[in-house]
Write a protein that binds this DNA or RNA. Structure first.
Lengths: 96, 96
DNA sequence: TGAATATATGAACAACTATTCATATATTAT
DNA sequence: ATAATATATGAATAGTTGTTCATATATTCA
């Protein structure tokens, strides 16, 4: 398959966004519906700063989407591709 | 979604294996069929050592599979999950 | 306005990673 | 057995990354 260097980099960046256990756990939480940064941090036992830093990367890759409400920001899975990538990966890990 | 820490790590490791442009280009090449290490290195403009190092990681994550024939080793995509992950990711990058 | 809360961000540091170079192993041919 | 070829591997190094800590911005409440 012919793949330009630029596109290879973009694709690698996408998978990089999913290449960390903390981010995976964030996505897993969001699979059940949107959540605030605070709730995510609480649920995962991470500092809010660490979660916020990670959400930034996920946001930039369009894997999660923010919705601001008052002083809270609720994050959710951005689109269907993301949950499909996630569950497909999980499949591979489970009966790989 | 409830996800054990161990499973989160495994999933992150899977995506990590796809988180580098060189490895993505290797996979892209293999999408067309099996190839020797030498042919991969030639086609990608990488040293055979670098390719071999990367193939090791891909092999360990069961993303590619080796077939030894004489002194050559031909690599191919290990299973269907891999090509599906690859094309799904490509989808997201293209019309994301 | 001022205090409190929620999130974001920059800098710094430790941990990890991809490549290169040198070398090792394995297979084939002479 | 020796030389040549294909691949693999260990060590070293440069570059990248995730977390923490301190601080900044934004919003609500009194």
């Amino acid at each position: 398959m012919k793949l330009s260097e630029l596109r290879a980099i973009k694709l690698a960046e996408l998978f990089s966004a999913l290449s960390d256990a903390s981010r995976i756990r964030i996505i897993a939480q969001l699979m059940d519906g949107e959540m605030s940064v605070h709730a995510l941090a609480d649920g995962l036992g991470m500092t809010e700063s660490a979660v916020s830093h990670q959400l930034r990367g996920l946001r930039q890759m369009h894997l999660v989407r923010p919705r601001k409400s008052g002083r809270q920001v609720f994050y959710s899975i951005d689109d269907d591709h993301v949950s499909r990538l996630f569950t497909l990966g999980l499949d591979h890990v489970q009966h790989g």
